[in-house]
């Protein structure tokens, strides 16, 4: 927690700075694409969100593994606190994908392999969050959700493989969201947004872990209070 407290102001500051610099560049000053025009700007929000959505899942699974193997409570907290952020990034990725699809494909939704995989990923996040929240005893929820995260991490590549197979057989490859060649001018806003998202994740993670720790403390105090009262009654 000390490390977390130490990096917190830096992460928060960097997040604000990168958003302040990155968003104007991505949305206003960067040049439009010769093929996609101004629509390309959506990609600067979409692509890093897709990357974050997946990376956070792997972070969550690693945390869950550490929690299950070494029973390290902090690892469990990190996993638990990551899930809503990851779900948010997959949701952002889907929304941006739909907004990009309307001008490019003429429809808000195409069963594109990447979009479909992201949608399934979003459902897996929802399942993880719902399971962790479904028990009277929060520790049981943490353990069950940790096992689910590991089952999910085995499944994510299988799901991607299956969706790709299904997609290539059902529709010819259309203009993909990320297939166009990246020029140097496009890389800058992409990297800035990627960094901003990453720092945002770290910031929110620290805040959420802090509040989870506080909630656990309150719970423990209450439990000990009940036990104390019971013992007092047994004696008196």
């Amino acid at each position: 927690m000390k490390i977390a407290n130490a990096i917190f102001p830096w992460a928060a500051g960097l997040a604000v700075l990168l958003f302040a610099v990155g968003l104007p560049i991505a949305l206003v000053t960067s040049p439009p694409d010769y093929q996609q025009g101004e629509t390309v700007r959506i990609l600067y929000l979409h692509v890093p969100a897709a990357v974050m959505g997946e990376m956070i899942y792997y972070a969550m699974a690693s945390g869950s593994a550490a929690y299950l193997i070494w029973r390290h409570p902090m690892a469990g907290l990190v996993a638990k606190a990551s899930a809503p952020v990851g779900a948010m990034f997959t949701a952002l990725c889907l929304i941006c994908g739909m907004l990009w699809g309307e001008p490019m494909w003429g429809t808000f939704w195409v069963w594109d392999a990447r979009l479909t995989s992201t949608l399934i990923m979003f459902f897996i996040y929802l399942g993880y969050i719902a399971l962790g929240d479904a028990f009277e005893d929060p520790e049981r929820g943490d353990r069950a959700a940790a096992i689910l995260a590991l089952v999910g991490v085995v499944n994510v590549p299988i799901i991607k493989f299956s969706v790709n197979w299904w997609n290539t057989l059902h529709q010819p490859a259309s203009l993909s969201l990320t297939k166009s060649n990246m020029s140097g001018e496009m890389l800058l806003p992409l990297f800035l947004m990627m960094g901003a998202y990453g720092m945002f994740y770290v910031t929110v993670l620290v805040i959420r872990v802090r509040s989870e720790l506080l909630a656990a403390k309150i719970r423990n105090a209450r439990m000990s209070q009940i036990a104390g009262n019971e013992a007092a009654q047994a004696i008196g």
Partner: peptide
């Protein structure tokens, strides 16, 4: 059972 002093709320203090 560990006998920890718990000072959680006002009525807990009253009871103890």
């Amino acid at each position: 059972t560990p006998k920890t002093a718990v000072h959680w709320s006002d009525d807990a203090d009253e009871e103890s």
